[in-house]
């Protein structure tokens, strides 16, 4: 556990940078986290992040297959939006825990 200053606010994060308190999330925080990885978040990214937050809030478990069938972006587009980590990176920017699914 660590505290990190993101977008001018002190945020509780895990060693890997995932928010530990999802209610501390904001769009600005997502933008800044993504920027650190060299990704500029656009409207499509945020649609995915909102979808992930909603699913997790509803207690659903996430998989890349499920997100790919969300109707927002297919699997290929997910890889383009979040290069090198379609589920891990999007979960991080969405302020939800690191994904635990194997698929």
């Amino acid at each position: 556990m660590a505290e990190k200053t993101i977008a001018g606010k002190s945020i509780a994060v895990t060693d890997e940078g995932y928010l530990t308190n999802t209610s501390q999330w904001s769009k600005e925080i997502a933008m800044e986290m993504a920027k650190e990885d060299g990704i500029d978040l656009g409207p499509k990214h945020f649609e995915i992040l909102e979808y992930l937050r909603k699913e997790v809030a509803a207690g659903e478990s996430l998989s890349i297959r499920k997100v790919g069938k969300s109707g927002i972006a297919d699997v290929k587009e997910l890889y383009q939006l979040f290069p090198g980590g379609p589920l891990k990176l999007s979960s991080k920017y969405a302020g939800i825990p690191k994904p635990t699914s194997c698929v």
Partner: peptide
């Protein structure tokens, strides 16, 4: 599963 998992890890 191993291949897909690897791709997802970049």
């Amino acid at each position: 599963v191993m291949a897909n998992g690897a791709v997802m890890e970049g």
